[in-house]
């Protein structure tokens, strides 16, 4: 092959660490959060330094792992989600999404009220 791609054994060895260190699932990632709470992802160079491998290896592992993360079924689910949410909003507004949470909160409140069974 005329272009670089990552060795599969290396990929499987480091995939989990690279995903975790790059914050593939972002928890408190945004820049505006206070520094003490913020958890920014590491850059490919920083991850490479920590794992003792080349930066381009990290880059390829991250790119492949991010794409592999969800199976193709999730793409089909995305179409269904968007269709349902969009049509729901057109028919019922914001309440289409929020009603069940508000109803649940009201039910919880009623159950905790004095005198409730």
């Amino acid at each position: 092959m005329g272009f670089y791609f990552v060795d599969t054994a290396l990929y499987h060895q480091y995939k989990g660490q690279v995903l975790a260190m790059s914050q593939a699932i972002q928890i408190n990632y945004p820049e505006h959060l206070p520094p003490e709470r913020r958890q920014p992802g590491f850059s490919d160079r920083q991850i490479a330094e920590k794992l003792g491998i080349e930066e381009r290896v990290v880059r390829e592992i991250r790119c492949v792992a991010e794409r592999e993360f969800y199976p193709i079924d999730e793409w089909e689910a995305a179409l269904e989600f968007k269709d349902r949410a969009c049509k729901g909003f057109a028919a019922g507004g914001v309440a289409f999404s929020t009603k069940k949470y508000i109803d649940r909160a009201k039910a919880d409140k009623a159950a905790k009220a004095p005198g409730s069974p």
Binding site: Q26, I27, A78, K82
Partner: peptide
């Protein structure tokens, strides 16, 4: 706090 699943958002 904020949690965000980038990979799933990509599918959408």
């Amino acid at each position: 706090e904020r949690r965000y699943d980038v990979a799933r958002c990509t599918t959408r």
